[in-house]
Simulated assay, not measured.
Amino acid sequence: MWSAHADQNGFIRFAIGMLAWAPEARIVHGGPAAKQALAEALRHRYISAKSRRGG
């Protein structure tokens, strides 16, 4: 379990580091601003990692 407030980077490293990426991630806990910030950070890192993977 990760917190969007306390361990956003840990969650992103976990999600990007998976061998097979999930087709979607649902952020269901936290305030609207925290959820939006996590979604944007995850999207940015995913796009960056995907280009490095050649996908």
Results as ranks from 00 to 15, higher is better:
L42E: 10
A41V: 03
I27N: 12
Q8C: 12
S51Q: 15
M1F: 12
R52S: 07
W2R: 05
K35G: 06
R13M: 03
V28E: 13
Y46Q: 09
W21T: 01
R26E: 02
P23G: 01
L38Q: 05
D7N: 11
K35Y: 00
D7P: 04
G17H: 05
R13V: 04
L19C: 10
N9M: 07
G10Y: 00
A39V: 02
I47Q: 15
A37G: 09
W2S: 06
S48P: 12
G31Y: 11
I47Y: 14
A39D: 01
S51M: 10
F14T: 13
M18P: 04
G10N: 10
I12V: 13
A20G: 04
R45A: 14
A33W: 10
V28W: 02
L38V: 06
L38C: 06
Q36R: 14
W2D: 04
M18Q: 15
A25R: 03
L42A: 13
R26Q: 05
G10W: 00
G10L: 02
Q8R: 13
A25Y: 13
I16E: 06
G54K: 09
S48C: 11
R26F: 01
A49W: 00
S48A: 10
W21E: 00
I47L: 14
W2Y: 12
G30K: 06
D7W: 03
R45T: 00
I47A: 15
I12C: 02
M18C: 14
G31I: 06
L42W: 07
E40Y: 01
A22R: 03
I47K: 15
A49R: 15
V28S: 05
G55F: 01
Y46W: 15
G10D: 08
A39L: 03
V28K: 03
F14I: 06
A22Q: 10
D7Q: 11
M1I: 11
W21P: 02
I27K: 02
H44K: 15
K35E: 02
R53W: 07
R26A: 09
P23V: 03
D7K: 03
A34Y: 10
A15E: 09
Q8W: 00
R13Y: 08
Q36P: 01
W2P: 12
K50Q: 12
M1H: 09
G31H: 11
L19T: 08
G10T: 01
G55W: 09
G30I: 04
K50F: 15
P32E: 03
G54Q: 05
F14A: 14
G31T: 11
A49K: 14
L19M: 11
E24D: 05
F14Q: 06
W2K: 05
G31D: 14
W21C: 01
V28M: 12
Q36W: 01
G30C: 03
I12P: 07
A33R: 13
E40P: 04
D7E: 08
A6H: 06
I27S: 01
D7H: 05
G31N: 14
A34D: 15
G17M: 02
G54W: 06
